[in-house]
Amino acid sequence: MSAPSTPPPSDAPRPPARGRPPRLDQARTVEAALALLDEAGLDALTMRRLADAVGVQAGALYRHFATKQDLLTAMAERMLAGCSTRPPDSAWSARLTTLARGMRTALLAHRDGARVYAGTHSTGANTLGFAETLLGVLREAGFGPAQAARTALAVIHYTVGHTLEEQAALQPGDQGPADPDRLREAVAEARHPHLAEALPVFTDTDFTAQFEFGLDLLLQGLRALSRPGPESAA
Rank of each mutant, 00 (worst) to 15 (best):
M1A: 09
P7A: 15
P7G: 09
A12H: 09
P13R: 10
R14F: 08
P15F: 12
P16S: 15
P16R: 14
A17S: 14
R18W: 12
R18V: 14
R20V: 15
P22M: 13
P22C: 13
R23E: 08
L24E: 06
Q26G: 10
A27G: 09
T29G: 06
E31S: 14
A33R: 02
L36I: 08
E39V: 09
G41R: 13
D43H: 12
L45M: 12
T46E: 11
T46I: 11
M47D: 09
R49F: 08
A51W: 11
A51I: 13
V56I: 12
V56R: 14
V56N: 08
V56Q: 10
Q57H: 15
A60W: 01
L61T: 08
R63Q: 12
H64A: 14
H64K: 14
F65L: 02
L72K: 06
E77R: 05
R78I: 06
R86G: 02
R86K: 05
W92N: 01
A94E: 05
R95M: 03
L99D: 03
L99W: 02
A100R: 01
T105M: 05
A106N: 02
L107S: 04
G113L: 03
V116F: 06
Y117S: 04
Y117L: 09
A118P: 00
G119C: 07
T120H: 06
T120R: 11
G124T: 03
L128P: 00
G129Q: 04
F130Y: 12
L134E: 01
L134N: 01
A141D: 10
G142I: 09
G144A: 10
G144H: 06
A146I: 06
A148Q: 04
A149P: 00
A149I: 01
R150A: 04
R150H: 05
R150L: 06
A152E: 04
A152H: 02
L153Y: 01
I156E: 11
T159A: 10
V160H: 00
T163L: 04
L164W: 00
E165N: 06
Q167P: 04
Q167H: 02
P172T: 10
D174N: 07
Q175W: 00
G176T: 04
G176S: 03
P177I: 08
A178M: 08
R182P: 00
V187A: 10
E189L: 10
E189R: 11
P193C: 03
P193S: 05
A196F: 13
A196V: 00
E197I: 01
V201Y: 15
F202T: 03
T203V: 15
T203M: 05
T205I: 10
D206Q: 10
F207V: 08
A209I: 07
F213A: 14
L215G: 09
L217Q: 15
Q220G: 15
L222N: 09
A224R: 15
L225R: 14
S226M: 08
R227S: 14
P230A: 11
S232H: 12
A233N: 11
A234T: 12
